[in-house]
């Protein structure tokens, strides 16, 4: 008697699991506003205008120092402690200007910082919502009060943007957030675009900046390579680039248009069906295991009940 009711219960569980499975609403994927939305904000960096003064780097560090617990650079070669030129993005550097040298006379500066992807790997990866994408502006921001420091965001970012403070006992992730809590809040634009004396960093609505970039390419076909970097890479980004050299040479990776993050979420949602699948699996396995166990007990081995 008891065993039949238990079995019925399990069957019921399996069935209800299967029912959830059929009706499961698709989980919300971790994307922000569509790339062509009217509210998404963006930055357009024109490498042909950048003069390499690195004022943006200094401004970025000044504005975000406290919030991000940034330090000044200490290079191993800096014996006299007079140097503040980071070699790359790091746990102390959210943006960096590099110089690509094609020949002695042909070169290009390039600014590296977070791309604020439309389908960001870091946001999809982060287990505790420490990386989030603003549903209106599309800004990808980091909250150290939630972060557990697992560094999955670093694995997931196709541009290797998030950096970790390896040398600190109390470390955090460091990356550009368009000065969301600092300059953007106070002055309406990121510190780098405010500071740039050459007008190389435009800031505004993504839609308008993208149109402007395409217009610039059309008007100056000899000045630019005919591509806006960040328009389509891994599903698009809110940080756009114009340049005179192929972007790969400037250290910007060649990426497919599909977002691995979206693919990964698609697979996970297919397998899990909003958690109904594991419940159904558990129910089904319970039924089988109980049945086998009962049969064993009749033979006198297995567990007693």
């Amino acid at each position: 008697m008891k065993s039949t009711t238990r079995r019925d219960f399990l069957k019921l569980m399996g069935l209800s699991g299967a029912a959830c499975l059929a009706s499961a609403a698709p989980l919300r994927a971790s994307t922000g506003p569509a790339a062509d939305s009217d509210t998404a904000i963006a930055m357009l960096y024109d490498a042909t205008r950048c003069v390499g003064c690195k004022a943006c780097m200094a401004a970025c560090k000044r504005v975000n120092m406290e919030q991000n617990n940034l330090s000044y650079e200490r290079l191993a070669t800096d014996a006299d402690q007079l140097w503040d030129a980071p070699r790359d993005l790091s746990g102390s550097t959210r943006t960096v200007i590099k110089l690509y040298k094609e020949s002695d006379t042909r070169f290009s500066y390039v600014k590296h910082s977070c791309m604020h992807c439309t389908k960001p790997g870091c946001v999809s990866a982060c287990p505790v919502k420490a990386m989030t994408k603003d549903p209106v502006t599309g800004v990808v921001a980091y909250d150290k009060n939630r972060c557990i420091g697992c560094r999955y965001c670093q694995v997931a970012c196709p541009y290797n943007i998030p950096r970790f403070q390896w040398d600190k006992a109390i470390p955090q992730i460091v990356k550009c957030d368009f000065c969301k809590e600092t300059n953007l809040k106070q002055k309406g634009c990121p510190a780098c675009s405010e500071t740039c004396p050459a007008g190389a960093i435009a800031f505004g609505k993504r839609k308008e900046l993208l149109a402007e970039a395409h217009d610039l390419i059309k008007a100056n076909p000899d000045r630019y390579v005919p591509k806006v970097y960040g328009e389509k890479e891994v599903g698009g980004a809110n940080h756009l680039y114009l340049a005179a050299f192929p972007f790969k040479k400037l250290g910007l990776p060649e990426l497919k248009e599909e977002s691995p993050a979206a693919f990964s979420e698609h697979i996970q949602h297919t397998i899990y069906k909003g958690f109904a699948a594991p419940v159904a699996l558990y129910g089904a396995l319970c039924v089988v295991a109980m049945k086998n166990k009962k049969a064993q007990e009749k033979l006198g081995h297995g567990e007693d009940d």
């Binding site: 990866a125 287990p127 557990i148 420091g149 697992c150 999955y152 970790f164 470390p171 992730i173």
Partner: peptide, 28 residues
């Protein structure tokens, strides 16, 4: 993992449903 986590003291985040991020494979 606890040795590896940079901000291990925040690991309680896993127990706060408001911080759950079901799209994250690591969360699962």
């Amino acid at each position: 993992v606890m040795v590896d986590l940079g901000r291990y003291w925040n690991a309680y985040s896993f127990f706060l449903p408001t911080r759950w991020q079901p799209n994250s494979i690591m969360f699962e």
